[in-house]
Amino acid sequence: MRNFVTIFRRELNAYFVSPMAYVVMVFFFALASVFFYLFLASFLQNQQMIQMQAQQSGRFQPVNVNLMLIRGLLMNLSLISLFMIPMITMRSFSEDRRNGTMELLLTSPLTNWQIILGKYFAALTLYAAMIGTTLVYMVILFVYGDPELLPIISGYLGLFLFGAALVAIGIFVSSLTENQLVAALVTFVVMLLLWLVGALGTFNSTNWTQQVLQYLSTIEHLDDFVKGVFDTRHLVYYVTLAFFGLFLTYQSVESTRWRG
């Protein structure tokens, strides 16, 4: 455990003591803010229009900030994460490989899992901090309205799990190369494929292959969370995907030991 904490702190320092973490967070926050503003302005416009129509027709029409704003916003945050996660994970193993510190790590009394988990949780912490910056929007929405809290919690839980799975994949890709740019690009392509694979399966529950393709898609599992529906299927999917990413990383690190 102590070894894990040492690696975790070393990696976290590498992120937060350098401008790296702040650049990632500001980038993400700027993009997310543009989306938030657009969603908010559109919601307010819709709300006004619906109220006017209701006055004219005498028929009450509800508006719902959770369904009409937060749901769409959280889905878009996952899209922005797709661009940011490679920036977070690209350095984790690639940098050690390039600087030659990988050999030091491997010959130290640390186990592979301690190294991998230390790096993984450090990257995941940065991802969580990045997503955490958007909580300021929720504070704003609570100041001006009374959104439902539980769907927001489930939405953020979904975003966290989504990130947890993709960060593991990013770490794996980074363990394969010493070139950070290559690591980032390959991670992005893999994540994009995992995102888009669902589009190959259309809205059918009758076709087995299409169902599997849809199941493999990372985004398909996020939708229920942001709606406010908790389903163990999605939890299991993200956790097993994260585990598989870490397992592949383990295999990759292990192979450097015997490949030399």
């Binding site: 908010l40 709300q47 009450f60 509800p62 719902n64 439902e148």
Partner: peptide, 10 residues
């Protein structure tokens, strides 16, 4: 089902 009314006073 009716959607719940949760507006923003902004």
């Amino acid at each position: 089902k009716q959607m719940e009314n949760i507006p923003l006073a902004m």
